[in-house]
Simulated assay, not measured.
Amino acid sequence: MNGVIGDVLPLAIAIAISPIAIVAAILMLFSTHAGSTSLGLLIGWVVGIVAAVTVFTVITGGVDAGQSQAGVSWVKVGLGAVLMSAGLRQWHARDRHRSAPKWMAAIDRMGFVQALGLGLALAAINPKNLLMAAAAGIAIGAAELSVADTVVVVAIYTVIAASTVAIPVVAYAVTRDRMRAPLDRAKSWLEANNAAVMSVLFLVIGAVLVGKGIGGF
């Protein structure tokens, strides 16, 4: 189990430092319905992370191990190549000006249900996060762990992946006035630097996946 945890930790970290959900959470904390919308986003984010990694874990675990090893290795190579390609594209585009997504402008008008749906979409439908969930699910499912160990690994993956959204939401609920300035600085830093950080992380994780895939042949 420890080896599988080591495999999924960098994937969980990649999701954790993805800026979109963090910036959305910070914007919601500054919105009219800060309490309900930030809670809805957090719940949707956690549920989406669990759902995505569980689906890929179940799919991978349901394939006969003897027949699936080569297939799993090819999938790892393919996912690694896609991540490396995404990292290169993001690196080359890191200095381009990009307007904020239109849904960010509507955050102030969102309620709990809309925020919940947004959290689910960002966690389970966002292509980059879905790639991470697929790689994590394949690593967990191919390891043939017991049900209890699988639950533990998925829980660790989820806690780490969701932490960067959970921490500001919880901290803001506890010390609202003191958190405004730090959250605003964090939002500015993420918007300015995250493209470069994510591109390097994608390249490293992609290379690791390709190496693990080749090693499985």
Rank of each mutant, 00 (worst) to 15 (best):
M110Q: 03
A100V: 03
T150V: 02
L203W: 00
V153I: 13
F112P: 00
V75G: 01
R109P: 03
D108Y: 11
L39V: 12
M104I: 06
G119T: 06
W103E: 00
V153Q: 06
M198S: 12
G206L: 01
A161T: 09
A25D: 04
V8N: 11
H92R: 15
L120V: 08
G137W: 01
G66V: 13
G80H: 00
L190M: 13
A21L: 07
S85F: 14
L83P: 00
V153H: 02
V152T: 10
I43L: 10
W74Y: 02
G119A: 10
T164M: 15
M132Y: 11
N194Q: 09
A196R: 12
A186T: 15
L120F: 14
G206P: 07
T150N: 00
V208L: 12
P19R: 10
V200W: 13
G3Q: 11
A86W: 09
V50K: 06
W74E: 01
V63T: 08
V75D: 00
P182H: 02
A106Y: 13
Q90Y: 00
M84G: 05
S68L: 02
A70D: 07
T158E: 07
V47C: 03
P182V: 04
S99H: 14
R109W: 08
M198I: 15
S99A: 14
V159W: 06
A195P: 04
I20K: 05
G35F: 14
A24I: 04
I26E: 01
I20S: 03
G35V: 14
A196C: 11
Y157G: 09
V47K: 01
G216C: 03
Q67S: 08
G117W: 04
A100R: 01
